[in-house]
């Protein structure tokens, strides 16, 4: 079973993501702030990370940079899932090292399609 690390601090979003991902047959790991997200990416070696951007401790940009800078987790694909959705926000995420970017609100099938693109 493929494992997805969800780094997200809002309960509603966590619940929805968990529901959708588990229904698709993925195991879900949760981190609720940026630092925890980095630690779990390195220690748990998930197949993919869904990264919120506005997070406590360190934000999603910084968490992404740290995950990509560590040789143990550098290869894990990271998809930014964020409400930052105006011109230039996508570029900021990609510049930080994210492999893909989807804006909230997303439709569950679109999110699933994006995940499949990276890890099948």
């Amino acid at each position: 079973m493929k494992r997805i690390l969800v780094v997200e601090d809002t309960d509603d979003n966590l619940e929805i993501l968990q529901l959708v991902l588990e229904r698709e047959g993925y195991a879900v790991l949760q981190a609720t702030d940026g630092l925890q997200g980095v630690a779990m990416a390195i220690n748990e070696q998930p197949d993919l990370v869904l990264m919120d951007i506005r997070l406590p401790e360190i934000d999603g940009y910084e968490a992404t940079r740290r995950i990509k800078a560590d040789p143990r987790s550098a290869k894990i694909p990271i998809v930014a899932v964020t409400s930052y959705a105006i011109s230039g926000d996508r570029k900021k995420c990609m510049d930080a090292g994210c492999d893909d970017y989807i804006t909230k609100p997303y439709l569950p099938p679109d999110l699933v399609a994006m995940i499949r693109k990276h890890i099948g």
Partner: peptide, 9 residues
């Protein structure tokens, strides 16, 4: 977008 995400989700 944040509350809309919850409503739509």
């Amino acid at each position: 977008r944040t509350p809309m995400n919850a409503i739509i989700g």
